[in-house]
Design a protein around this nucleic acid. Structure first.
Length: 738
DNA sequence: ATTAGGCGATTTTTT
DNA sequence: ATCGCCTAAT
């Protein structure tokens, strides 16, 4: 086959091993995507019908790109291929099969924000205080349990402290309500199919028979639920091919389980393992530094990455005065390097640990008139006005969706408060009807004020009207008329200020998106649109057609490559992040995260750190990241820039910077080993470090999350299990180290 | 007694 | 920019 000739020997082997289980361990830049694409094309070319192939990717974007490439290789017969993220593929399957697990086909999909709202409601109903038990923490605990396939009952049995007991209690009611609301959260999109296949072996057999060839990309980032699901599906034909790299596993915090890679060979003893170790992407300098860094991890499968590429430029490490300076430095280097290497702006990426860091970078780019695009950040579909309209649409599709109903029941204002809502919910509950039906009968609720009665009744009438009309109108007409009648466009217009006009435009943009969606496919439904939007990943929205610098988090950078890469904020507390610098496993994940970022670079990599960073409303002294030392000195060029900046004068008058002795001992060349005398306070920055346990007179024992400021204004943020996070001024707090 | 609007605190990573 | 709490207005 002609298209195989461009592959190396290992890659060809990976492509041609069509039958049986295969694990491909693919280092960064080793042509993994090409292998996957060619493998699919190969399967089709040897006669496998495209609809028997299921390919799971990490983003929908990756899926559609890969699909396009397969079409180019083998033509239109490949369009029946099933390709997408775990969540979108199984949401699609659930759309047809969910009745077997007690859901209606029009079920809603709740994102984390919706889930959190629901959890708060449950906690309120159960009389669990939001102050004592952080709803966000409860949510992530529940999600964690679900990812490990632990149900509410088992969670309750396993609970060892009051927090876990409460979480389990909330969990049980949360699941009950999701079912009642005909809604699923992200985790359910994986759990319900497992339930479906367990309860209905015939259905499982149908899908096993359907998907005879399964491919999974980014296998290192799959969780236990995904693993189980795939194991079920692949059990019959065992034609499963997973591609991953343990060194690029960066989603353990979300339940990704490294055992999935390690267990693969145990579950499939006949599996063939193929290693792709030749890197085609990066210069030798870049690869060497990344490799030296990642070798500091204990948990890893040994690999020998190599490249035939040239040595290239050394990696630059630039020390900047502060975060503004960091932005300016990066911008001026973008100018220099892009000219020197003859690159466009679309060849440049700036990566960082937290979304909050994009602000100062954006400022610098804007000031220099450099075009840029941000991946993620405050996403369009997360904006309040967009979520509000989406909630209206969801209620139309799924009247049982109480969470969405409650979101918009008093927006625009209809004269309803907590009390009126209580009465209304009680009425709906005793009448045993969904909320839109109850709203139509608001007149029957004696306890409501006239204003509340008419407000709710008109909302009920609105839903009723558009539910009827949905049969006769096109999707795009319907949504426009509906949104118009909701009245929020008028509110924004009347308000007239720039923010309101921006919101007005966002709603218009949402309507355009609906029109576009309905024009793009003949069978477009509102259900389908809502589902697609719920399952968008932030990469899916990224437009790489524009010639602009790309800004994104290190997490979003996975799978991409750019000739010129900047990683900003290589500082202790930021990368590695505060709370992740204590546990070895978490620290190793931070290291992998930087590894992912570094290995995105093809020709030139620049790492920056700031000495002072404006965080949490004040200046904070930052030490260079320990990872810089861990890269070894060989290919690294250390530089330091000084530039005037508004923070500078304040900085130079401040107390000497707290000393710090990084944990790593080798290659201390990036950090001058200074040890200023610093003993004035009983507790100084020397004693008080992130991760230490301290005792407070009132709050009890807690863990230090991080420390900011110096001398008199030395502050610590401490996590107390009972009372939560407290910001303490050391001068007064009188903490004791435990 | 209720509700609406103002004010202040907050910021890891995400399907 | 958004959320949650508090107080003024009804």
């Amino acid at each position: 086959m002609s298209f195989l000739e461009s592959l190396n020997e290992k890659q060809q082997e990976a492509v041609k091993s069509a039958q049986g289980p295969v694990m491909i361990v693919a280092g960064p830049g080793s042509g993994k995507t090409r292998v996957l694409t060619f493998r699919i094309a190969h399967l089709i070319s040897i006669g496998v019908p495209a609809y028997q192939i299921l390919a799971l990717t990490f983003t929908n974007r990756a899926a559609s790109e890969m699909k396009d490439r397969v079409v180019k290789l083998v033509g239109e017969k490949s369009t029946q291929l099933w390709m997408g993220t775990f969540h979108s593929v199984f949401a699609r399957i659930l759309r047809t099969e969910c009745e077997q697990v007690g859901f209606q086909k029009n079920f809603s999909i709740y994102d984390s924000q919706d889930s959190l709202g629901l959890i708060k409601g449950v906690m309120e109903a159960q009389g669990i205080s939001w102050q004592r038990f952080n709803p966000q923490a409860i949510r992530s605990r529940i999600s964690g349990a679900k990812n490990q396939l632990i149900g509410p009952d088992e969670a309750a049995r396993r609970a060892t402290d009051i927090f876990e007991e409460k979480a389990a209690q909330v969990y049980a009611e949360y699941q009950r309500r999701l079912k009642q609301f005909n809604a699923m959260d992200f985790d359910d999109l994986l759990l319900k199919p497992i339930e479906l296949y367990t309860l209905h072996p015939k259905t499982l057999a149908k899908y096993q028979d359907r998907f005879r060839f399964i491919l999974i990309d980014e296998y290192q980032d799959t969780n236990r639920a995904q693993y189980t699901l795939i194991k079920m599906l692949a059990d019959r034909y065992r034609n499963i091919c997973v591609v991953g790299d343990d060194a690029q596993s960066i989603y353990a915090f979300r339940g990704a389980d490294i055992r999935n890679i390690l267990d693969f060979e145990r579950d499939y003893p006949e599996a063939k393992t193929i290693r792709l170790e030749q890197n085609y992407r990066s210069t030798r300098s870049i690869l060497a530094a990344a490799d030296t860094l990642i070798k500091h991890n204990v948990d890893q499968i040994p690999k020998d990455l190599w490249t035939e590429n040239t040595e290239g430029d050394p990696i630059s490490v630039v020390a900047c005065d502060d975060d503004k300076d960091e932005g300016l430095t990066i911008v001026s280097r973008i100018f220099e390097e892009s000219r020197r290497l003859k690159l466009d702006m679309k060849d440049v990426a700036i990566m960082y640990r937290t979304n909050a860091q994009s602000r100062s970078l954006e400022d610098a780019l804007r000031r220099q008139n450099l075009p840029y695009a941000i991946v993620g950040g405050v996403e369009f579909y997360q904006r309040k006005e967009v979520k509000d309209v989406m909630a209206y649409l969801r209620v139309l599709v799924n009247p049982r969706d109480q969470e969405s109903f409650l979101r918009i029941v008093n927006y625009p204002v209809r004269g309803l408060g907590d009390v009126a809502l209580e009465h209304f919910l009680a009425f709906a509950g005793s009448a045993g009807v969904d909320l839109p039906s109850a709203a139509l009968r608001a007149g029957e609720i004696a306890l409501l004020t006239p204003k509340a009665k008419s407000g709710i009744a008109s909302l009920g009438a609105l839903f009723e009207k558009y539910r009827r009309m949905s049969a006769e109108m096109s999707l795009s007409e319907l949504s426009r008329a509906y949104v118009d009648e909701i009245g929020i466009l008028k509110i924004f217009k009347d308000e007239g200020n720039p923010e309101a006009m921006a919101r007005w435009e966002n709603v218009q943009e949402l309507l355009s998106a609906i029109s576009e969606f309905s024009a793009s496919r003949p069978d477009a439904t509102l259900e389908q649109f809502l589902q697609d939007v719920s399952l968008l990943s932030n990469m899916d929205e990224w437009d790489d057609k524009h010639n602009a610098v790309t800004l994104m988090t290190l997490h979003s950078a996975k799978g991409l490559e750019f000739p010129l890469v900047f990683v900003a904020g290589l500082e202790e507390g930021l990368l590695p992040f505060y709370s992740s610098s204590i546990e070895r496993k978490e620290l190793e994940e931070e290291r992998r995260l930087l590894y992912v970022g570094m290995t995105r670079a093809m020709r030139k990599l620049t790492l920056t750190h700031a000495r002072i960073r404006f965080r949490f409303g004040e200046m904070s002294y930052q030490s260079p990241s320990r990872f810089l030392e861990e890269m070894g000195g060989g290919a690294v060029l250390t530089e330091s820039v000084h530039r005037g900046s508004p923070y500078r004068s304040a900085a130079t008058t401040a107390a000497p910077r707290p000393s710090r002795k990084p944990a790593a001992t080798r290659g201390d060349r990036f950090v001058p080993d200074e040890q200023p005398d610093y003993d004035s306070e009983a507790l100084s920055a020397d004693d008080l470090k992130a991760g230490k346990f301290v005792e407070h007179e009132i709050f009890g024992k807690g863990k230090v999350v991080y420390v900011v400021g110096t001398g008199e204004s030395l502050k610590a943020v401490v996590d107390f299990p009972q009372v939560g996070r407290k910001n303490l001024l050391l001068k007064y707090a009188r903490l004791k180290i435990v």
